[in-house]
Design a protein around this nucleic acid. Structure first.
Lengths: 375, 375
DNA sequence: GGATGTATCCGAAACGTTTCGGGTCACAGT
DNA sequence: ACTGTGACCCGAAACGTTTCGGATACATCC
């Protein structure tokens, strides 16, 4: 007997058992000072004996906080899964768990709109904060959350008005600029840029970083052929990459916006009898697991997804805390992660180029800018 | 003006605006019949105009359901992430979203006990049901949920008393038995079994399937060397695999319980100058992304993680629905998925063996057993 | 004209928690 | 004896929803 059989442990039950008021039991458990030590001990004992856990709904209703952080998860129908989802979620929930919150997935089914789901989550009070990713150049989700004044952070950023909110992003511009310079130093002059059609901001940054470096070099010998392929259409992707490779004046160095594109180039090159890296260098971006196992191994940039996720979580939690604290001053924080280049076997000096000094490699560093808004 | 500025849309506000009672508004939105069509229309209009979304806590408190399904997610400290987490979560939340529920991660930080976290989730009422994975031969989490009578499903199963709950599992026993027979027909006689130390039930099933097939063959020429390596210790793993490969009478065929082990074998074999598949066949299990890119490509079994996850979700939702329905009869359902063999380049007839007929390959099929409990 | 039915609406309770504003009591100070 | 002063405790309201059991008004039926 004793505790078992006591379905549903509520404060009321506990209070009845102890012949105390609900108030006192609540305050004893809450650590308030106006309850006698002896009483508190009795309450604590009874609570552990009955394995009491406060009801989430009751607490939520009165405190207005759910203890949840929502991650908006669009399921583009049946397409290949974001290769980072696992790492991402692990990083987020790890950091959240350390500070007593949990993550939930606000799943967006194929026929729903992301904005609708987001609105529901926010208005229903199921989340204390939101993590957004796959940010477009203009993003209505961001606009909504900003205008609604709801706490959130993003992985990636919009093209403009980035100081309205806190974000963590990868510095693709610098990475691509550095890569161009490095490959240029290796003697490459004919470049291919494998990009995507999707209107994500990271595309813009990476392309612009590359083009800026090209412009800076100001070498008339440098030629660039760029192609944009839909991210989730395998046939179209292969077609586009094939076109680039089959050209007689094909590039000697290809920069791909994602590893998927780079791996596709590797595969097609091998099919066309093009030697990588002797005749063609390929550099990717993301460092997905497969890229360590391709032949040759893919030289690429590591995204540090898990670390980025941890930073996102911390950022969001900090801003929630500062909302609670009496001085509700909350600025926005922006973190740019410079991804680390992972050198594997898919790059080499340009064919026929003299063996020059190896170029300098972008180092791994992170920049954080915090700016308060005192409006 | 109009709607904006109306912070927090509650039923009370809506009722005031419409000069109706809270009850009527609630019933109008709830689709009850005892409200006039004209009134319902007015209510519906006002609700959309104000973008009304019911407060989750309020509803939760009175209905006792949270709309959430919990996934217990242990974060073994910093170890390599479960390669399937992403697919897994995608499959689950996809199927859940179709039926109006969402997934949340009950994260188990490194210092917490899984059981404690589970208890908190259950007793706090934050989840309507639970998904458990990484099931051990005896699993205290399963025991707790069963005795508590809380709805849950598992991916994998305990060794005994499996009919106490619903599960989805991969038929590793059949897969390993079939694989042995197949490799035997290919002429292999010296086998290596790369297993794990962890006490997961799938280990037992796969090993026993293999050993049963060996026993059935009853060929004195067949020899088996087995080794158990810790799953998350890279050095120990390499050491163990190296020992197996460095032996002069080393196996000609290695069956690995996971792709990670198989890939390790592939890598070390190449380092030792052992030709795969001519001198050594390696078969893995899981079909992780990397295994398509190894050299040679790894022959392995596909887990169909996403599909398994979908089945898990459906199973759980069905059982929740049947709890709600008047006839609360709820049985348990058990689904065994026979994984599909993915033939790539890491297998071949035994060295020196005559080129025999290729053995039959296990086909992909699924068996579902439903058994009601009418006690 | 009274009884019965029907269509429409509402008051109030309940879910479990937190918290504000007291209340009681004993004891010390004057 | 009266007033303060802590120490300790509690009643009641509030959060937003659902739902049970009426209540009202009006038409219909015998």
């Amino acid at each position: 007997m004793s505790n078992t059989g006591n379905r549903k442990g509520t404060l009321k039950r506990l209070a009845a058992e102890l012949e105390l008021s609900v108030t006192t039991v609540s305050r004893a458990l809450g650590g308030y000072t106006d309850v006698a030590d002896a009483t508190r001990q009795r309450v604590l004992d009874a609570a552990t004996r009955n394995a009491y856990v406060p009801n989430a709904a009751g607490r939520m209703l009165v405190t207005g906080r759910s203890g949840f952080i929502g991650l908006l998860l669009p399921l583009r129908d049946r397409a290949r899964l974001d290769p980072f989802l696992g790492e991402y979620i692990a990083g987020l929930s790890e950091a959240l768990a350390e500070r007593g919150r949990d993550l939930f997935m606000a799943t967006v089914a194929s026929r729903q709109s992301e904005l609708d789901v987001l609105r529901h989550v926010v208005e229903s009070g199921r989340a204390d904060g939101i993590v957004l990713n796959r940010i477009g150049e203009c993003d209505e989700r961001v606009d909504y959350l900003v205008s609604r004044g709801f706490p959130f952070v993003t992985h990636g950023r919009t093209l403009e008005a980035q100081d309205r909110y806190s974000w963590v992003d990868t510095d693709g511009a610098t990475a691509f600029a550095d890569t161009f310079r490095w490959l240029y130093q290796l003697g490459h002059r004919r470049f291919g840029l494998l990009s995507i059609t999707e209107n994500m901001t990271f595309r813009r940054h990476r392309e612009e970083g590359f083009r800026r470096a090209v412009a800076e070099q100001d070498d008339p010998q440098v030629s660039v052929v760029a192609t944009h392929v839909p991210r989730f259409d395998v046939a179209a992707r292969q077609q586009a990459v094939h076109t680039m490779l089959a050209d007689t004046a094909r590039p000697t160095a290809i920069l791909a916006l994602t590893d998927e594109l780079a791996l596709c180039a590797l595969e097609l090159a091998s099919g066309l009898g093009i030697q990588v890296p002797d005749q063609l260098s390929v550099v990717g971006f993301d460092n997905i697991p497969e890229s360590a196992f391709s032949t040759p191994g893919l030289t690429t940039f590591d995204q540090c997804t898990r670390e980025a996720a941890r930073q996102l979580a911390t950022l969001l939690l900090d801003s929630l805390d500062s909302l609670d604290s009496p001085d509700g001053q909350s600025g926005t924080t922006h973190t740019l992660i410079t991804p680390a280049l992972v050198k594997r076997g898919s790059h080499a000096p340009a064919p026929g180029a003299p063996h020059t000094v190896h170029g300098t490699v972008p180092a791994n560093r992170a920049t954080t800018t915090t700016r308060g808004s005192y409006s």
